[in-house]
């Protein structure tokens, strides 16, 4: 993101979002049900991280470009964090163990930052694989939550679990439709690739 006047406002919105999510009231409200915990709170934490990442990516580029060529390190970090929080017992633990809860509020925004710093650097093929993976993983996860014969999280009701599964399936369908629409009508991948590939070349020159 190029520095603009709106940037401080954007930053303030992200900070306010993070603070309200982390506040006892915000946590109590969103963590009461599996649906809001998994499908609202956790994605919001990642999105807020992405917001911080967008603001800081230009400033960070000289320091991280060497270690994050093609965005691979950052994307792997994002995937790793996402996989960890997909473990049902990790979500259970966040409810009863403050260390896990704190780790969640740190790691998910960090994953968002890493994503924002890296996605634009990735080659279109890597982006495509990532997008396709996200869609099919949402589908498989949604099915798994709906098909599970037992409660996956001890802290949540079975009906919650089914709703969360349906929510994941819906998220997968929306994501797939979004990507399909984008390539059919806008071809956003193209313009962004050209812009950021030159940016990353500059960055690696700086790093040398």
């Amino acid at each position: 993101m190029t520095p603009t006047r709106s940037q401080p406002i954007f930053l303030a919105v992200c900070v306010a979002g993070l603070v309200s999510l982390a506040s006892p009231l915000g946590r109590q409200f969103l963590e009461a049900s599996l649906v809001t915990h998994m499908l609202v709170q956790m994605p919001l934490l990642v999105f807020i991280g992405m917001g911080f990442g967008r603001i800081s990516s230009a400033a960070a580029a000289p320091y991280v470009a060497t270690w994050n060529r093609g965005g691979s390190t950052g994307l792997l970090l994002t995937l790793g964090v996402a996989m960890f929080w997909m473990l049902p017992r990790a979500m259970d633990a966040a409810l009863v163990d403050m260390r896990f809860e704190a780790a969640k509020f740190v790691s998910l925004p960090v994953a968002g930052v890493a994503l924002a710093w890296s996605y634009g650097q990735a080659s279109p093929i890597v982006k495509g694989v990532l997008n396709a993976h996200v869609v099919s993983a949402l589908g498989v996860m949604g099915w798994a939550y709906m098909a599970a014969p037992v409660r996956l999280c001890n802290a949540y009701l079975a009906s919650d679990q089914e709703m969360a599964g349906a929510g994941l399936l819906a998220a997968g369908a929306v994501t797939a439709a979004y990507f399909a629409m984008r390539i059919v009508f806008f071809g956003a991948t193209r313009s962004r690739y050209i812009r950021t590939s030159s940016a990353s070349d500059d960055a690696s020159i700086v790093a040398y």
């Binding site: 473990l87 049902p88 017992r89 259970d92 037992v150 001890n154």
Partner: peptide, 8 residues
């Protein structure tokens, strides 16, 4: 071996 709290 254990992905859920119950299995763990």
């Amino acid at each position: 071996a254990a992905f859920t709290t119950e299995t763990a």
